[in-house]
Write a protein that binds this DNA or RNA. Structure first.
Ligand SMILES: [Mn+2]
Ligand SMILES: [Mn+2]
Ligand SMILES: [Mn+2]
Ligand SMILES: [Mn+2]
Lengths: 215, 215
DNA sequence: TTTTATTTTTAGTTTTGTCTAAATTTAATT
DNA sequence: AATTAAATTTAGACAAAACTAAAAATAAAA
């Protein structure tokens, strides 16, 4: 598999979590910052290699083979992110780009040894689950902070949006994975929340609460 | 710089340590397992980018810019090799191939943090020196075991040939970097050596002694 | 110093992954 | 149901990096 093919497979994987019936050509093009016609070309190639099942105009889905490949790429991406944060001291908003490159390094032995070196982590720095060597993903129970009952305590366990902007906002507010959160009050008009994070009062918009997973 | 361009630059660097006057097209082709005509094409491209100075039929040399790039690639290669051996537990004959891929990961911050994480090593698992962040290479004093006086003690500090076959031979004979070696006797006819390695007697051929650096 | 051999370069293709522009199919509106 | 709009695919072209075969330059041998 070339790097380009791997990037397509990974994007199809992420999109098919939202649209399991079939992923649109345009959606893929949007994610990869390329043109729909290029996507069509690549779908034929991936279909020939039995990585996706594709019929014209109907969108694509991953085959078993394609799904497994995708999980291995995601596994590598997330393990490298853990390495970069835990071992090299990068912050969680700096690692995605580098992991985009590292995820294409080929050796299976490498990634399994890395996994062991990191202590077999189950989640990456953004709270996303790490597939094991067989591709099994341990589901992490979580809810969006926006959908949680008032006056109960939770732990931050992940982010939905992992853009630099959002992560830096969380840093500024001293919100990290592991922080204890309690919703004190919810404004009816715009769903703004008053929360207590690690004991400190804070007002956060619905947009924030909608991108923070708690458990 | 593309991966292909980086590979050419690195090969030219290694070859120019032996032929500083100018590196042959055929030599480059041989190292990269490609054809001379492909090399010529690439030399034009690298010349346009001011990474090599090239005139037809006269061979190529690296420009200052090219030399610096080459050293940064070598730096990455060797640091990753240290990581693979010291942190992940690979043996010294397994790491070269993987480092061939890792050396192309782009981030400068990554490599400098990796360097720090590894404790700023000065040599890789094969005893080859690691350029620092500025490209400075600390010269390691060393001689070939074949050229050393009899009855003096030395330490193994590197290998000239780092092929799997040779490294596995050394493993089998329990010769490692750091081992103490003393030449007891040299056979005049074929330069076979009788040596003592960490106290144990051993007979080794001239070919072996010619590929082992001591200090 | 010719002649021959080797090395290197040029010319013309191929493959991969991309693009634009045009054609086609499907979806959405009147 | 007919028309318009949007999504998707085809056709044709291009750049990167490789190849083969032929031409040209350099080096070695006679
Ligand atoms: Mn990421
Ligand atoms: Mn992540
Ligand atoms: Mn190496
Ligand atoms: Mn090495």
């Amino acid at each position: 598999m070339t790097i380009s093919e791997e990037n397509y497979i990974k994007v199809i994987y992420h999109l098919s979590l939202v649209s399991p019936k079939g992923v649109n050509t345009n959606a893929i093009a949007g994610m990869l910052d390329t043109k729909a016609s290029s996507v069509t070309d690549m779908m034929k190639k991936l279909s020939d290699k039995d990585l996706v099942s594709y019929q014209k105009y109907q969108g694509v889905t991953l085959t078993d083979k394609g799904l497994h490949s995708a999980k291995m790429i995601v596994r590598k991406h997330r393990l490298w992110e853990v390495f970069l944060v835990d071992k090299l001291g990068f912050s969680w908003d700096e690692v995605h780009e580098i992991a985009e490159e590292l995820e294409h390094i080929k050796s299976e032995q490498l990634i399994n040894k890395l996994d062991a070196f990191l202590g077999f982590p189950v989640a990456d720095p953004h709270g996303d689950p790490i597939p094991d060597a067989k591709g099994v993903i341990k589901k992490i129970e979580k809810q969006l902070l926006s959908e949680v009952e008032i006056n109960a305590s939770f732990h931050c366990v992940g982010v939905k949006d992992s853009s630099t902007d959002f992560l830096k906002y969380l840093d500024k507010q001293k919100i990290a994975l592991g922080s204890v959160v309690k919703v004190i009050d919810k404004e009816d008009f715009d769903d703004t929340l008053t929360v207590e994070i690690d004991g400190k009062r804070l007002t956060i918009s619905n947009k924030i609460a909608n991108n923070l997973y708690v458990q």
